[in-house]
Amino acid sequence: MMNIHPTTAGMTLAGILFVLGLISILIRRNLIFMLLSVEIMLNAAGLAFIVASSHWAQPDGQVMFMFILAMAAAEVSVGLALILQLFHQLKTLDSDEASRMRG
């Protein structure tokens, strides 16, 4: 196979996944899809941490991944609750509808 350094390969994969998530969040209007896109991006960041951890032979990257995991779990639970409320209030999942606060 090609002689690519594993760190470079892993990091590039993380970059690709991150950018895909970013594209997705930019083009979607559906709130659940946007949440999914955030998950993709978080996962890509976690991948980058794992790759870095193995690159430097240090546990810190993996520790960071665990924190990302915890954060993702909390984010999803709160995010889903918010989406639920919005859906009840606005009867739609369109994120553009929730723009009345101009914030």
Partner: peptide
């Protein structure tokens, strides 16, 4: 890929928590 990068525990966590818990929640 996590497993390949020498982080088997993280790979397990990824499957259990991410794929298993969070995605199922969604």
């Amino acid at each position: 890929i996590f497993y390949l990068y020498g982080a088997p525990f993280m790979a397990a966590l990824e499957i259990i928590i991410y794929a298993g818990a969070i995605m199922v929640l969604i």
